[in-house]
Amino acid sequence: MTDAELDLVFKALADPTRRRIIERLDDHPGQTLFEVCAATLAEDGSGLSRQTISQHLDILERAGLVRTARKGRTKIHTADLSPLRLVAGCWLGRFIQED
């Protein structure tokens, strides 16, 4: 992994709303923007706008942590945890495998 790719993943993780979105999409794959917004409101009680959630999803997608696909005319989002494993393997790993 390049430094630029590591930056994208760490930046994507450096926000609690984005970490919750990853957890949610890992538990419930294939969600629309509307559904992610509804779940964010229901679980966190936060009134984030759709635009804000959409920007969070874009940042996660650029980091490779969220994949999008078309289901009919609707865009759905699913978590992809492989960048986390890469980060653990190529950079974090040298610090956390000591013990």
């Binding site: 629309t32 509307f34 559904e35 409101l41 229901a42 289901k71 009919g72």
Partner: peptide, 25 residues
């Protein structure tokens, strides 16, 4: 009928979303 969102609790309400086959959710 096809649902794009299964029933879920969303704060004070419970909701779901389906495709009306006429172009709308």
């Amino acid at each position: 009928v096809a649902f794009t969102m299964a029933p879920m609790d969303a704060g004070p309400v419970r909701m779901a979303v389906f495709d009306d086959t006429c172009g709308n959710l």
